[in-house]
């Protein structure tokens, strides 16, 4: 018997889920075209995320359905075991596993948001620098075209100062 469990924390972002699964030691791996022929009751699809947990249906996995990742496994957890490289890590029940993954997902999501915020801050800073540089270049080019000599300095606030002079 197979089952689909919906968790309180919706696993929406693949990158975050991968982080979370890694954090709980589930060794996530995306299913590629070379994996789809792998024989197991839970038929694999390209894009599924395999864990190192296994049961009667084969590897327990996450699949993107509608708008979120859902875990697919045998509801009885018959023959539940881990195929972890580190044998001391034992199999834990799916409900407990999902609780752990949810916690790890929350943490990873927080870091994900921080990363997005940092990327946005860097983008805005680069835009600002580009805007200042464009203004500077345009002002210098126009001034020279109109016969001004241009001297560039920076003021006490670190702002660019262009001193344009011409004789009339």
């Amino acid at each position: 018997m197979s089952a689909v469990i919906k968790t309180a924390t919706p696993f929406v972002i693949e990158e975050v889920l991968m982080e979370a699964l890694t954090a709980v030691g589930a060794e996530p791996r995306r299913v590629s075209s070379s994996d789809v022929d792998l024989v197991q009751r839970n038929r694999l699809q390209i894009g599924d995320i395999l864990t190192n947990r296994s049961d009667y249906n084969g590897r327990q996995l996450f699949r993107f359905e509608l708008d979120r990742w859902v875990m697919m496994h045998d509801s009885d957890e018959y023959a539940g075991r881990t195929v972890d490289r580190f044998s001391e890590k034992g199999y834990i029940k799916v409900s407990r596993f999902l609780t752990d993954v949810s916690g790890a997902y929350e943490s990873a999501y927080g870091m994900y948001l921080e990363k997005l915020a940092e990327q946005e801050r860097i983008r805005l800073e680069e835009e600002r620098k580009a805007r200042v540089e464009t203004t500077r270049q345009q002002a210098i080019a126009k001034a020279k075209a109109q016969g001004y000599s241009v001297k560039e300095t920076t003021n006490s606030k670190g702002q660019i100062q262009l001193v344009l002079t011409r004789m009339v």
Binding site: V132, T135, R136, A139, A143, Y148, N155, Q159, I160, Q161, L162, V163, L164, T165, R166, M167, V168
Partner: peptide, 9 residues
């Protein structure tokens, strides 16, 4: 005479 413009960006 000199004309002078100081631009601060």
């Amino acid at each position: 005479p000199e004309q002078k413009i100081t631009l601060t960006i």
